[in-house]
Amino acid sequence: MTLTHEVRTKEALVRIEGVHKYFGEHHVLRGIDMNVKEGEVSVIIGPSGSGKSTLLRCVNLMESISAGRIYVRDELIGYREAGGRLHDLSGREIAAQRREIGMVFQRFNLFPHKTAVQNIIEAPIQVKKQSKAAARAKALELLDRVGLADRAGHYPAQLSGGQQQRVAIARALAMEPELMLFDEPTSALDPELVGDVLSVMKDLAKSGMTMIVVTHEIGFAREVGDTLTFMDGGVVVESGDPREVIGNPQHARTQEFLSKVL
């Protein structure tokens, strides 16, 4: 096991190859290439409308891509290649692919009619067919990990934004994904609540989780990120070591963007 693990860590867990995306006439992604290695934290920044969220949403099929390929663990996302053509995957197959990929949304999207613990156990019970007791024990452990052990019986409406987002992270982790996607996870939070969510993400990164994070938190990118990608106008403008990109941006557009957000 350790041998294959070592071999695998050198490979990219996520391979994004020549991806284009059109919304009608609107060309949102214009040929994106990007690799994310296992255990890596890949941070994507860029102005609104740059396509960074769309790219993230393509990885777990929240959006379909118009051209190119996305692979997660060498498995083509959204299609099956047969007879020289791509075939759409069925709903069942798409759901199976999504199980391996956790996603955290800007607006949390917790289920408001379920308590924190019910939010977390829903998919393990319904999708992975875990027993209620096992799912619950795991959920309480996850809640403890995100610092909310005493909020298990609270409904989302009784939690602050930061607490809701931490429950949302725990909910995604309960499916034991091999990849976590974060779509501007702190953008909807009051400034004083951002830190709690970022520290949970930091711990998660330390534990070796592969993460793609779309964010405006440059500090987080510098501290936690293994690579930083700056996107603008649907292309990758610049990518590399976060400290390098932030400290010494090579492109004028990167410089201009960073001067506004730093």
Partner: peptide, 16 residues
């Protein structure tokens, strides 16, 4: 609409 997306992202089937 975020509810549908969140559940889909967890790998749940549409009927469920």
């Amino acid at each position: 609409g975020g509810q549908m997306e969140a559940a889909e992202a967890l790998g749940m089937r549409k009927s469920k």
